[in-house]
Design a protein around this nucleic acid. Structure first.
Length: 915
RNA sequence: GCCCUGGUGGUGAAAUGGUAGACACGCAGGACUUAAAAUCCUGUAGGCAGCAAUGCCUGUGCGGGUUCAAGUCCCGCCCGGGGUACCA
């Protein structure tokens, strides 16, 4: 449907900034491109059979028209499209690099997998300190060398930065794709409302967790909003603590009849993760998640009924339920016990849904004296609460999570303070193999497969159950043609429909243009390509580098180009990308940095989150209680819908089928206006602009009515860029009349006569101009565009009241306005007699001399010596001056021997002396 | 619950710790006009006093505090928006 007025907000801001910097003499790269893979075009293809590439092409043409209408200074020669093979060639290339590297913790960077292979050959993996799968076994050089090719390759997958693995996904059979948690609402897909099931699938995964620490650390070096950085930190969720094994007390009697060997046997244990191992002597019970795998075997006969009832109740509760009932304590006793390894205390084991199966080990050691949730639980189930710190408050009324004080009732750490105690306990655990210091992250590896058509093909094929990459020289691996954009009958992704979608080492795929792989005539081996495609975030994770060298066919961007442009100085986008795109792209950037491909650990120096422009939608409330959105353009300015308009509308709109609106007394209450015409009052609501709510405002319409300059300035004038605000044109006349006033400095609006004069500017005129230069420049640098617009208004109003049409003044003013209102600036620039474009002008700098407030300077004598000058406002009254002079006498007396740097006097206030 | 944000006129909003409400909308009054539109001018936080110029008082969600001086900084609350994971 095209862009709405909310979309250009950020583009206008960056365009103003780009033009401003260009006028200041910088070489500015202000690009635009399209992240053009994705589900909408694919859904449309499924419905209509139109190839997504065609839909994409049409939409881009539409966007381009709208963008051109607003006067952006984008460098279109650098335009990128993520769905273009010449672009995704490099997305695939980066994927291959990820496959060919692993994360070496000692070097703290990505290292070639071939280096790993060399080491495995000679020393096995005993000394390899790398990020890898949890279940990676140790292997000696001899074992490695004895392995088959397949065994070796499967082993290497445990290290590669991208690798296939079996994982649970939200599978929606009707959409034929995997959905994110976000796309699933109440067990059905958000789009279409189809059922969603948990299904185990082989998915490509990205080992982003390898970069968790560096992703956190890097946040300290970028100018991003605190809230955004905080969101990323929380998403990565680093917590430092320890894992502790609690041996199980002998089971008496055993409840379940399944056999999980470790349970009840010698050495069986429950492992927990804790950030407060120092409180371990305060542990009085253990809580497992209801879904914990041990629960069944831990439950005694007597408790079986209660536990099972609790488990099924917990399973029925949604996350929303769990969160809204934070204060209600629930749980059940399993009947079993474990043992505190430090003091041998017998600890009862409970289950409760405040412990989540998906985080840590799904088990918590409960310390009611130090944790409020544990405390509530202990009170509810009448469990003991032991104080373990002498600094702790009264633990009979509430828990106290302090770390202050010395430990009591705490065995080997009695008398110690926090740090020493923690270290002592961890060493104790590590010596006995009962636990260790551990850092836990919330961040999970990122699933990198989509069972869709409209995405980048993964440049890999399968041979004997092992994935191999195609040759780099064979890139791009172009999407094949398929007959329908749906999964195959056997449940394979859409690419499974492509004919001859196979890799043949002897006959590599042809390059350029959409095609299937060559027909595999006669001889030669052929292997199945990977059938899933890459997710939407693949192309968007590195595209900013492509702008630097958009047409390079030899590399993603030449070294010269990357060295020249370095990094993104200013990145404007919405907060919705906080933990998706903005995290993945930082991850890829760090990886590319490790490979020496890019010069910075962070690719975006400054990031600004623009707010959302919301729409005002209108509801029609029917007498039946139904609420229907009505196109905002059909209502009048008082939000009234007239009956004649309504009757026309319902003919075209099938949502109104069966609704009686053509007579009084039908489903709608009609009222008569002053002229006797029937209308009904609509109810307004503010929300996101969307097709569904029929509240979309097209920038083309605003531009047609007020002009692009006015539209640009008004969007800026609405308020701070970061704020969300509803769209409304009520104030646009203010900007419109500003532009008219600006014009009227050059031409008489009635006669069209040129008013320009050649006189020398007066000090007053210079002051007005230079105040404007100063204000507007600093406002742009601070991204305060709304106040910059105010600055223009003040300036023009003052020049107008001075009747100043002097070329020397207006010349500068036009350049100042040019970033905001490029069209009118160009015309006025020409009116001033310039033959070049205003784009080639130089941005003026202000001169403080012209901004001085006063004419009267009073020397101030301190300790008998002249120490400086004091400036009075020009309109200061003699009485005020006298007051100050008297004050200065007092100061002089008081300041003997002190070094006075500055004296500030505010009328009606105290005198401020800076020493 | 936790994290991040924000709370200022009728409205959108301004204010490096220094005369709160710039600028704009809206509204009211006036000028021009046969009239209207357009345009221009004046006024516009609240209260009290005054014929008036003007003067005084109160005001930035609530309660405290720091400071010569607080919308701004600190502490404790209340409410809105965004995020989230009851994360041990």
């Amino acid at each position: 449907a095209g862009l709405h007025v909310g979309h250009p907000l950020g583009y206008i801001a960056t365009d103003i900034y780009a033009r401003f910097k260009r006028l200041k003499g910088f070489n500015v790269l202000n690009p635009m491109g399209y992240d053009s893979f994705g589900l909408p075009a694919e859904q449309y293809a499924i419905q209509t059979g139109t190839h997504p590439a065609i839909t994409t092409e049409n939409n881009i043409a539409r966007y381009r028209e709208q963008l051109d209408n607003i006067g952006f200074s984008f460098d279109w020669s650098r335009e990128v499209r993520t769905s273009d093979p010449s672009f995704y060639k490099w997305t695939q290339w980066i994927f291959m690099q990820l496959f060919n590297h692993y994360y070496d913790k000692t070097a703290d960077k990505a290292v070639k997998i071939s280096d790993l292979v060399e080491r495995l050959k000679t020393e096995g993996n005993a000394n390899i300190n790398a990020v890898c799968d949890e279940d990676t076994p140790s292997v000696s050089a001899a074992e490695w060398n004895a392995w088959s090719e397949k065994e070796q390759q499967l082993f290497l997958l445990k290290y590669r930065l991208t690798f296939p693995e079996e994982s649970f996904v939200n599978w929606c059979a009707q959409l034929g794709t995997v959905l994110s948690n976000d796309e699933v609402k109440d067990g059905v897909s958000e789009r279409g409302g189809y059922p969603v099931e948990r299904k185990l699938m082989k998915q490509w995964s990205m080992r982003i967790t390898a970069y968790a620490d560096r992703l956190i650390e890097g946040l300290n070096h970028v100018e991003w909003s605190e809230s955004l950085k905080e969101q990323q930190r929380n998403w990565i969720g680093r917590s430092q603590g320890a894992s502790v094994k609690f041996p199980l007390a002998p089971l008496t009697p055993k409840g379940g009849d399944t056999q999980v060997p470790p349970l009840g046997a010698e050495g069986a244990y429950i492992e927990v993760f804790t950030t407060r191992v120092d409180t371990i002597y305060g542990v009085t019970f253990m809580v497992l998640a209801p879904e914990h795998e041990y629960v069944k075997d831990l439950t005694t006969k007597e408790q079986k009924e209660e536990i099972e009832a609790y488990q099924s109740w917990a399973a029925s509760r949604s996350d929303v339920d769990r969160m809204s009932e934070v204060k209600k304590v629930t749980g059940a006793f399993t009947g079993s016990y474990c043992v505190n390894p430090f003091n041998g205390e017998k600890i009862p084991i409970y289950i409760a849904d405040y412990v989540l199966a998906g985080y840590g080990t799904g088990a918590v050691m409960a310390v009611p004296s130090g944790d409020q949730r544990d405390w509530n639980f202990a009170k509810h189930f009448n469990l003991p609460i032991i104080s373990i710190l002498d600094g702790q408050k009264d633990i009979e009324t509430a828990a106290d999570n302090t770390k202050e004080g010395r430990y009591i009732n705490s065995g080997i750490i009695n008398g110690m303070e926090y740090k020493e105690a923690t270290n002592t306990l961890i060493s104790w655990l590590e010596e006995r193999g009962l636990g260790k210091g551990k850092i836990q992250y919330r961040l999970r590896n990122a699933v990198f497969s989509r069972q869709r058509y409209w995405g980048e093909p993964v440049p890999a094929y399968w041979k004997d159950g092992v994935p191999y990459l195609i040759e780099e020289s064979e890139l791009p691996l172009v999407l094949p043609k398929i007959d329908k954009y749906l999964p195959t009958e056997t449940g394979e992704p859409p690419l499974g429909r492509a004919e001859n979608w196979k890799y043949s080492p002897s006959q590599p795929p042809q390059k350029g243009g959409e095609q299937n792989s060559p027909a595999l005539e006669g001889s030669g081996e052929a292997y199945e390509y990977e059938l899933s495609t890459m997710p939407g975030w693949a192309g968007s994770s590195w595209y900013f580098y492509r702008y630097m060298d958009a047409h390079n066919d030899a590399t993603f961007a030449s070294k010269e180009a990357v060295d020249y442009w370095q990094q993104v100085d200013l990145y404007v986008g919405g907060t919705e990308h906080a933990v998706g795109h903005l995290l993945y792209s930082r991850f890829w950037n760090l990886f590319m940095y490790d490979l020496g491909l890019v010069p910075h650990t962070e690719y975006a120096k400054k990031l600004v989150n623009q707010g959302m422009i919301q729409g005002r939608s209108l509801y029609l409330k029917l007498n039946t209680g139904r609420r229907l959105f009505v196109d905002v353009n059909l209502a009048d300015e008082r939000d009234r819908l007239y009956r004649d308009v309504f009757l026309q509308m319902i003919e075209k709109d099938n949502r109104f089928e069966g609704i009686k609106g053509d007579e009084v007394g039908g489903d709608i209450d009609w009222e008569k206006d002053e002229n006797g015409k029937y209308y009904t009052a609509l109810t307004p609501e503010v929300e996101k602009m969307s097709k569904r709510t029929l509240n979309v405002v097209n920038p083309d319409d605003v531009v047609a009515k007020y002009g692009a300059d006015c539209f640009r300035m008004y969007e800026m004038f609405l308020g701070p860029l970061e704020d969300s605000k509803p769209w409304s044109t009520t104030g646009i006349t203010g900007v419109q009349s500003f532009l008219r006033k600006l014009w009227s400095l050059f031409y008489d609006l009635n006669t069209g006569k040129n008013l320009l004069t050649d006189g020398e500017p007066t000090p007053e005129e210079l002051k007005v101009l230079h105040a404007c230069i100063k204000k507007v420049s600093t406002d742009i640098e601070n991204f305060s565009f709304n106040t910059a617009v105010s600055g223009f208004m003040i300036c023009v109003n003052e020049l107008k009241s001075m009747r100043c049409s002097k070329r020397l003044i207006l010349n500068e003013l036009v350049v100042l306005v040019a970033p905001f209102a490029p069209f009118i600036a160009e015309e006025l620039w020409e009116a001033l007699g310039h033959i070049t474009s205003v784009l080639d002008a130089q941005y003026p700098t202000h001169n403080e001399e012209y901004l001085k407030e006063s004419e009267v300077l009073y020397p101030i004598s301190i300790n008998g010596k002249k120490r400086g000058e004091y400036t009075f406002a020009a309109d200061a009254s003699p009485a005020d001056i006298e007051k100050v002079v008297r004050a200065m006498e007092v100061i002089t007396k008081w300041s003997e021997g002190k070094d006075i740097k500055k004296v500030i006097v505010v009328p009606g206030r105290m005198v401020n002396v800076v020493i």
